[in-house]
Design a protein around this nucleic acid. Structure first.
Lengths: 232, 232
DNA sequence: CGGCTGCTGCCAGAATCTGACAGTGGCCGC
DNA sequence: GCGGCCACTGTCAGATTCTGGCAGCAGCCG
């Protein structure tokens, strides 16, 4: 196994362990000596991976994705840049900041001439369409990622308000509105909630008893239209 | 210089030469032997770079971007995936295919558990908003990239039609419409053209006499609102 | 204090990379 | 066909890099 492959493996092993792992454990799992492991960690850190080591504890990888070297065509990079710019315009401030950061990260590693081409890229997106949400969509995304229950007050189309406790598992981005897709404990069914009609958001620490992927699958099955793939 | 750095350098050198370059030239430019160069090329090809060699001619790199290993946070990758999904829904079929391909490329190099996470990613985009354009936006993007003149018939808001020859330099994606931003030869000024009002598109081979970046800068300067950065 | 751990310098042996040479086959102009 | 140019492969000794073991320092905790 080449060194570069081993480095990617190391990232994966670190990903699997959420708690701190000692260098010795990692080394034996990869079949190398501790000394080499320290060198590998240093190399990864030099490449931008956020691995933290603390004496007496072990190593932790901050949550994230490590992409190996990758080749994109002109059109593919245009698509990614355009998409990220669109996301950057969305009302979800955390996500839009992340989109900006991601583009900056890509630009940072590019040679000058390519960076210019990226900056001068000629696909533009219009200003964000809709009104600003009253709630923090970042909290919703966090609840989805961590499979936590969400409580809030919902005002439906007729104006009637109701208290809800839901298991959120997806977030839809439409032209004007953001929609939280969830299993509603109150109604015992899948429900969609327009973000602009949600108030008094309460992000709990209570894990809901299902896997988010499973909920997503079931929800899709309830839709009339046949669905081709993820994200449709 | 480490081997991996040298490989990135090789990509850059290949990028600079648009015409085929012989292996010997490349080798001397990098200060290595021809044998090593062949080995490097083989390694790059193994990593997915589309380098083509032909006996009697030399090597050419198909236009594209090579990204070095890169680390993204969870939110950054969510932003990129969401953005690409949005692009994939746009009416521009070439670009939307490119977005799909880019996601597939990323998914292909990810370990299984991460690929699942990506597939089950819970940020969804609604169906494409507007009507289908009658023209091939791919041709417009190509004309922009290559700085070529574009001819077409334009029907303005009042219904009046006119023949135009323009220097296109940007393409705007708005809620419902795509807008071509260009210097209009006919009117001798910057003009915006809604894609759905363009017909009889004629992509010429005639290069226009200005740089697209410069046009973009001048156009931005003519706008009232102060602009913060690229893509705004 | 002792035990555990991260982290660095050093050095000999293992593994890999490199350069040179030889050879094959394709393409092109003469 | 012939010769020149070039991409590409196999082989092998020497240069280079990587690796593992050892020693040592520093921080944290019971």
């Amino acid at each position: 196994m080449s060194r570069s492959e081993r480095l990617l493996d190391l990232i994966q092993i670190l990903r699997r362990h959420r708690r701190p792992v000692s260098g010795r454990t990692l080394a034996s799992e990869m079949g190398v000596s501790i000394r080499t492991l320290y060198r590998d960690i240093a190399t990864l850190q030099g490449q931008g991976a956020s691995i933290e080591g603390e004496a007496g504890l072990g190593y932790v990888l901050k949550p994230g994705f490590m992409l190996p070297p990758l080749m994109f065509t002109d059109e593919e990079i245009e698509a990614i840049v355009l998409g990220s710019r669109w996301v950057a315009k969305q009302p979800d401030s955390r996500l839009s900041a992340a989109a900006t950061d991601a583009l900056a990260k890509i630009a940072a590693v590019l040679p000058d001439d390519l960076r210019e081409e990226l900056d001068a890229s000629t696909l533009l997106v219009g200003p964000a369409a809709g009104a600003v949400e009253g709630i923090d969509l970042g909290l919703v995304r966090q609840a989805i990622r961590n499979e936590r229950k969400l409580g809030f007050l919902y005002r439906d189309a007729g104006g009637a308000a109701s208290e809800r406790v839901v298991w959120p598992f997806a977030l839809g981005f439409f032209d004007k509105v953001r929609v939280v897709v969830a299993w509603c404990e109150t109604r015992q069914d899948f429900r969609h909630f327009r973000a602009d009609r949600i108030s008094g958001l309460n992000a709990t620490d209570i894990r809901y008893p299902r896997r988010r992927q499973a909920l997503l699958r079931e929800w899709r099955a309830t839709l009339d239209v046949p669905r081709r793939g993820p994200g449709d």
